[in-house]
């Protein structure tokens, strides 16, 4: 059952490092078969973990539980916080979870409108987290916003434009900048390339890969797109009907899938 844990403990390079996030026996169901259950895994610092599966497999529910946005029915999510030390997310105070969400964590939503304030400028979108942690100098906030626009390859001349005037790809990059401005350690991404054109996807993936390695981010990324998973993730969890069916290093899972469902997923992508 605990494939992921066994796999990791046997992988020597992780042995001396404490996990950043550990999930133990996590369950969340809306109705029988709708949700996710019996989830166990560890995420190590600097690691990019992909959660793959078709829609309805429970991967988004799982991501919500991991990122403190949805209380699970049972189980634990343990997080090693810079500010609060080792903590059991849902056993602790909600105030701590909220602090994490605007400091050590970032969340990149599939739909930019869920992660951006569409009615305020790009600059304000990036500046919000800074202001939330007490920054009160307009000039400084604006300078940092420009810096991050550059980092995500958006022309700084667009700083006063609203996200609604941006293309889909730009909106996603803005969402990423908005999250990264406070230097989080852990980023949750829900289908970040969903709904984008293939060429735009490629550019975004390239940017993400660079940022992740340059900043040493840990990432949990949910995607139904195995190509995205292959490009970004070090390790994969394959989900089906709310349960984990296979875990392993990305290449291993994609090149030599063990579970029939994973085999089906992989073959369907090859046929495309």
């Amino acid at each position: 059952m605990n494939n992921a844990v066994e796999l990791l403990t046997s992988t020597s390079e992780w042995q001396d490092i404490a996990p950043l996030l550990s999930v133990r026996e996590l369950n969340k169901f809306y109705a029988p078969g709708k949700g996710c259950g019996d989830i166990n895994f560890d995420l190590y610092p600097g690691e990019v973990l992909g959660i793959v599966g078709e829609s309805g497999s429970g991967k988004s529910t799982l991501l919500s539980c991991l990122s403190a946005r949805l209380t699970p029915d049972s189980g634990q999510v343990l997080y090693n916080s810079e500010q609060f030390g080792e903590m059991d997310l849902y056993a602790g105070e909600e105030s701590q979870r909220r602090v994490l969400m605007r400091s050590e964590w970032g969340i990149v939503h599939q739909h930019a409108r869920d992660g951006l304030r569409m009615n305020v400028s790009a600059g304000a979108n990036i500046g919000e987290r800074l202001m939330a942690v007490g920054e009160r100098h307009y000039g400084d906030i604006r300078a940092k916003a420009e810096e991050w626009l550059t980092a995500v390859e958006i022309d700084t001349g667009r700083i006063d434009d609203r996200p609604s005037q941006f293309s889909g790809g730009m909106q996603q990059r803005l969402q990423i900048a908005r999250n990264l401005v406070t230097h989080p350690k852990l980023i949750f991404m829900d289908e970040p390339t969903g709904g984008l054109d293939v060429s735009v996807q490629a550019k975004l993936l390239d940017l993400l890969r660079n940022l992740v390695s340059r900043l040493g981010l840990s990432v949990i990324i949910v995607t139904h797109d195995l190509a995205v998973a292959r490009l970004l993730a070090h390790r994969l969890i394959v989900m089906r009907r709310g349960a984990v069916v296979e875990t392993g290093l990305t290449d291993q899972v994609l090149d030599d899938p063990q579970h029939p469902y994973t085999q089906l997923l992989v073959s369907s992508i090859l046929q495309n």
Partner: peptide, 8 residues
């Protein structure tokens, strides 16, 4: 009287 599909 409403339908309810059950929960955990």
């Amino acid at each position: 009287v409403n339908q309810f599909h059950g929960s955990k």
